[in-house]
Amino acid sequence: MENEEKILNPQESLRIIRETIDVAKKGVQENGFHFLLWGWLVALASVGEYYLRQVRGGTDPYLIWAVMPLIGVPAALIYEWRRDKKHHERNLVREWYGLVWLGFAISLILSLVLAIRNQVSPVPLVMTLAAFATFMSGLLMRFRPLVLGAAVLWIGAAVCLALPMGVHVLVQAGGIVLGYLVPGYMLNQKARQHHV
């Protein structure tokens, strides 16, 4: 922008707004890291629980879930810390994105406690919450595959109603692959194309 005080006409004003917002939005794009990280962890833990419970007949197969945050939380925190060091900007969309998933995490912990206390399957509750957070992420990033992924998770939660508790984790694994991992890889591909 060489001109010190170029006075714009309405067409030029609109063009400047669109071009600048397009540039700024590129910084808002996520690369799908968290969807891939948690997608793989949840899918593996779900299949692992099913295997330990149904095949090996273990007494405490759900303990596999304790391993998941031990890997996921440090990995996610290190990733965010490194990204903050690289990009100093505060970003409105990213802030909302973080708040949506913070709300998800709080609701998830409460739901797990309620499900265990009432001796009901936590899977439909977890899938419903994950669907909502994924749906909001898709809207915030304007990325339709995440919105469709959320729909898959909602359908998965509803399907659980018709199935015995023992196979709920397999529905969860399938839902996570379609609802998290597929959109996550698509987001990653999109980010690579835009060098995000």
């Binding site: 922008m1 400047i16 900007e89």
Partner: peptide, 20 residues
């Protein structure tokens, strides 16, 4: 806001809440 640069600054800050 009819200045090219001032409008670009404002547009950018509308998306990125805070910028260096």
């Amino acid at each position: 806001l009819l200045s090219q640069l001032r409008l670009a600054i404002m547009s950018y800050l509308m998306v990125v809440r805070e910028a260096e």
